[in-house]
C-alpha cells in the first residue's frame, strides 16, 4: 500500500470521526442515542474510491473512535452505532455494484438501514417492543439524510479523482 493512500485513509477516518462526533451533539433527542448518519458521507465516498476492506476499516475505526470520545464504548449507544454502521456499509457496498443504481438510491437505502440497525439494537437491548414507536420517525428522517449524503458524495465524486496509481 502506498504511503499516500494510507495518509488519505487516515484523513478520511479523521473526517468521519469528527462528523460522527458532531452529529452526536445534534439534539434530535426525539430518539435518544439514534444518530442521523452524517458520517456516511465519508463511508459512501470511500466505498466509491477505495477497496471494500478499506472502506470497512474506515467504518469500524470511526465507530470505535467516536464511542471512545463520547465515553460510550461497549455500552448500548456503541452497539447501536456498530449495528447501524455495519449494516448500512454492507448494503451500500452491495447496491453500489448493481448496474443502473444511482448513488442517491445507494445513499438513501444506506441511511434507512443505518436507522433500522440502530433501532433493532435498542429493541433487543432495552428488551421492549415499545421502542418500535420510534420507527416511523427514524424512517422519515433517513430520507433527508440519505438525500444530503448522496448529493454531497455525487458532487465530491465529480471533483475528486484519485490517480490510477493510487487506486492500485
Amino acid at each position: 500500500m502506498k504511503l499516500r493512500r494510507i495518509v488519505f485513509i487516515s484523513l478520511l477516518i479523521a473526517i468521519a470521526s469528527i462528523l460522527g462526533y458532531v452529529e452526536s451533539l445534534i439534539p434530535i433527542t426525539l430518539v435518544p442515542g439514534v444518530k442521523l448518519g452524517l458520517a456516511n458521507i465519508v463511508i459512501l465516498f470511500s466505498i466509491y474510491h477505495f477497496k471494500w476492506y478499506e472502506a470497512l476499516i474506515i467504518t469500524l475505526i470511526r465507530i470505535v473512535l467516536v464511542s471512545l470520545v463520547l465515553g460510550s464504548f461497549l455500552n448500548v449507544g456503541f452497539f447501536m452505532s456498530l449495528s447501524g454502521g455495519l449494516l448500512s456499509y454492507l448494503l451500500m457496498v452491495l447496491l453500489k455494484n448493481i448496474k443502473n443504481i444511482s448513488i442517491l438510491f445507494v445513499s438513501i437505502s444506506g441511511a434507512l438501514v443505518h436507522g433500522l440497525g440502530q433501532i433493532s439494537v435498542a429493541i433487543i437491548v432495552m428488551g421492549a417492543s415499545q421502542v418500535i414507536y420510534y420507527l416511523p420517525l427514524i424512517m422519515l428522517l433517513s430520507i433527508p439524510t440519505g438525500v444530503i449524503v448522496g448529493v454531497l458524495v455525487r458532487e465530491l465524486n465529480k471533483h475528486i479523482k484519485l490517480e490510477k496509481e493510487e487506486i492500485e
Binding site: P32, N75, V76, G77, M126
Partner: peptide, 14 residues
C-alpha cells in the same frame, strides 16, 4: 404521546 417514549440508554429505564 406513545410515539415519544422516554428512554434512558445509560440507566436502562423507560
Amino acid at each position: 404521546s406513545p410515539n415519544k417514549p422516554i428512554v434512558c440508554l445509560d440507566l436502562h429505564y423507560m
